[in-house]
Each structure stands twice: as C-alpha cells, then as structure tokens.
Write a protein that binds this DNA or RNA. Sequence first.
DNA 1: GAAATAATGTTAATTTCTCACACGAAATTC
DNA 2: GAATTTCGTGTGAGAAATTAACATTATTTC
Lengths: 262, 262
Amino acid sequence: MQIERREIIRELLGTKPFISLDELGRMFPDVSEMTLRRDIEYFEETGEAIKVRGGCRSVGFITAKPDDRVSERLKENVGTKRAIAKAAAEFLETGRSIFVDSGSTMRSFVEHVPGKRFSFTTTDPAVALELCKDGMSAVNMVGGRLESDNQTVTGLQATRFLSDINIDVAFLAPSGYSEESGFSVGNFNECELKRIVVDKAKVVVMLIDSSKFGKSLPYTFCTAENVDVIVTDSGVPETIVKHASLCGTKIVIADAPAEEKK
Amino acid sequence: MQIERREIIRELLGTKPFISLDELGRMFPDVSEMTLRRDIEYFEETGEAIKVRGGCRSVGFITAKPDDRVSERLKENVGTKRAIAKAAAEFLETGRSIFVDSGSTMRSFVEHVPGKRFSFTTTDPAVALELCKDGMSAVNMVGGRLESDNQTVTGLQATRFLSDINIDVAFLAPSGYSEESGFSVGNFNECELKRIVVDKAKVVVMLIDSSKFGKSLPYTFCTAENVDVIVTDSGVPETIVKHASLCGTKIVIADAPAEEKK
DNA sequence: GAAATAATGTTAATTTCTCACACGAAATTC
DNA sequence: GAATTTCGTGTGAGAAATTAACATTATTTC
C-alpha cells in the first residue's frame, strides 16, 4: 500500500540523513525499484527530501553552517534593504521613463514608490504586478523567456523589446561589486540584458547592500564609470567610496533605523 | 586557478538554489567537466552544497519546513474552478507550445498543471511566476503594457511579440458567452490580443464557468466555430450545448465531487 | 633544477536514472 | 453491475551522468 509505505519512509527520513535506494529495496522487497524512485520523487516534491545519486537526503538533517552568509543575508538584511529602497526612491522622476530591475532588492524597492505618475519598465513579473496595483503609473512588462532561477525575463525577445523603448532612469541590483570586476551577476542572459539597460539609460542607479562588495560573479555588466548613483548601507568599504568618487559616481548611504524591530 | 574559480562558484551558490554542470561548463570553458565535478565534490564536503544529478544545490536555499506543502495540498478546496481547471489540464500536450490567458480562472488553472515539460506563453505575470516555479517548463512572458484593471499585458508590443511565436494549444478565459455575441470581454485591447491568439492557435480551449453564459460584454473576440473545446460545469444551459455541437465544438462538463474527502 | 605534490585532463566502464508503455486493481460513472 | 477511468505499479530499453583509474600538466619545496 502506497500510503503506508510512504509513511514508513517519512519516519525514516526523520531519523537518518541519507536513505539509499538499495536500503529501501531491502526494506520493501515486494515493490519494484521504480516505485521507490517515485516515492523519493514524491518526497522531493513535498520538500522533505532531496534526490541524490543512489537515494535521497532528508532536508531535516541539512544544516546551513553558521558561517553561511546566504541564510544570514536572507534574514538579516531586510531592514537594510528597505532603507536602501527608500533612499533610492528619491531618484525617481515623475513623468520620466523608468527601468526597474528584477530581484528581491527591487521587489522591496517598488513598495516604496510614491503614488505618482511614472512610466515603468521592468523585467520582473512580481515587480510589474506590484507597480500596477495603484493604477497610477504606466507599467511595461518586458517580454521574453522567464528564467526559473532568478525569475527574470531574458533572451532575444527581451533584448528586442528593450531596444524599442527609451530609459531615463534605471534602477539596477547587481549580485556583486568589486573595483576590478565592476558590477556582476551570475547569469549570462541576465548580464546581457542589464548591459543593454545601462547602455540606454541616461541615469543609472545601483541598489546594493554592503554584503555584496568585494564579490565578483562570472558576468560583469558595467563598471563604476557607467553608474551615476550607488545606494548602499554604511558597511561600504572606504576604498570603494574613494574609487567611486574618482569615477564621478555619487554614493548614498542609507542605514536601517536603529530602533527598527518590526 | 582553482581558488578563484571556487570562490566564484561559492558566490554563485549564494545567489542561486541550483547550479547545473552545464552552466558551470559554460562559465568556465577552459577547464574540464571533471574539474568542475571535483569542485562540486569539494562544496559537498564543506557542507555548502549538495551534489544532485546534473549539478548541485546550495544548502543556503534549502528550507526545512515540514508538512508545508502536504498540508496545503490537503486543504485545497475542491471547487468548481478547480474541477474545470483539472479537466482542462487534460488538453495539455507535452512538448507543444501552449498559450495561457490571463485572469483568475487561468491562475487557478496553472496550479493544476502537471510537472512535465511544456512550453508556455502567457500574458499574465502571476501565471508566468506560478508556471516557472517548478523549473520544468519553458515560460515565455509576453511583453507590453500591463493594464492595472485586469493585470494583463496588451498593446502593440504584445501584438508584435505574439506574432513571433507559434501556438499549438491555447487556453482562454472569456468574461462572457452568448450564442449571439460569442465569446466576449470588456476591454478592447484584451479583445484584440485574444483574437490574435485564437487566430494563431491550432487548438482553442475555453475555460468558462456557467455563471458567464448568456452574458455579452462589449468586445467579442471569437465565436463557437473557432473553438475546439469548452470546459465548464454542469450549470451550462442546454441550448448552448446544442449550439456547440452544431459548431463541432466539444463540451467538457467538470463538476466538483459531491462529497469532499481526505 | 629535480623531486614531490597538487591540480587537471582523458577515457572507458559502470551505475543510475529516465522514459514510454503495459498491466491490473480500485474507484467512479452510468 | 458493467463499463470506464484513474491510480499505483512493473518492465526494459536507452540515455544520461557519475565514477574510477590512469595520464598529463602545473606548482611548490628543498
């Protein structure tokens, strides 16, 4: 019986970090390997396990190490992100054509857009939905292939789409920045698109929290020379501030209010 | 150099939940696949990633929240909309180009799409986001002006976008249907777009609950002759069933199960 | 500069996985 | 209660992906 079997496996998942297919095979000699594979697939779908070669691993035993910056960043930077978003919103200009990048930083950003008449263009469906909520602004959704990784639109269609529009102010969020590599991301298509945007925009505003400084991802889409404003928090290294001023780039430092505790 | 490369991969692990070997191969064309495998192995050893078929997953993105998806699935209300959506999902064809309309009916519809490989195109950002969640299908977001009242993409850009793609099966949701006026909506641009879709699609499937029968909105985008399948519930008037069969349109009646179970 | 060590490349063998289809039992529908 | 559909399962071929063993090239160390 399927339900019983899966219940047993589920319990096993609670006691062991890894279960091999062989093991399951020995445990349930009456069912075929394929069935057990499908069971594992099921647990992968429910998010309880992760399929690996030869079996599966129980997510309950997967611990993000304390030095893991990812989980830290996901949780702790909310306040900072919001502060950055707020500060960046100052650079919005009524009636101009504004490009808004994709990603969690930008999703936070659009929540702070004042209810005025703007003309937005974006590559992020979630951003587009948020922006068109108030009904004040015109919202242009860039068409193209939607990547499941980063939920952004890219590809030939997107490129073509962008070539047809003008951009006055562009708000972008890189995944990393270093003096040597400039502003970079981890996805080639995403990089291509951002490059076009930077190229077309009259004013480029970067939203980047300080945890991303000193990092270089594989694909660089522009350098400080191309950027007008960098909005970040107080964790920005001094060397980067200096370098930016040499390039004529303004740096805006926005910190989360000390008493912000939700 | 190994250290640099691994540092880059480490950064990437911080931005993406999954990295494929192909991806790494494209990123570092100068090293062999084997080297990248060894890199992944290294990250598995440090506990930063988990080796899975085709690449690796970043532990930072693995969230252990038990029963979340399971309980959700069990809670799902088995309503008419779900029944219609489920019945309509039968007309999905793996590997074909599928168009999905905008609106709440379609948002419900995409929740019932089986996790197979499809190629989707849609005018609804929320639909697009949902579809790309599982990462199985290719999702094309139609670009253009996003209307705030119905949250659908329309306009010249959208038209042009659609003209570039082929549609095998189109799933559409009209706002009203009557024998005299056919399938209609309340927005001119929306109508224009749907008309194009109907025109291009080899198979047209309409999702329409019976409350919409007998209604005619200002803009008609097609008639029963153009439609291959109508999926609705048992409230459909007899006259409409007759008329449909005259036009060679198949009617699928999907009702919610009488008794709720599980 | 030579030996030692580490990093990477190459290839073949093996294993695992996926896919497509078939089958029977249970549930549903008429 | 018969027919149909759905669901869980089995099978086997074929296509990956992974491993392992060995060859080769950098890098370090003395």
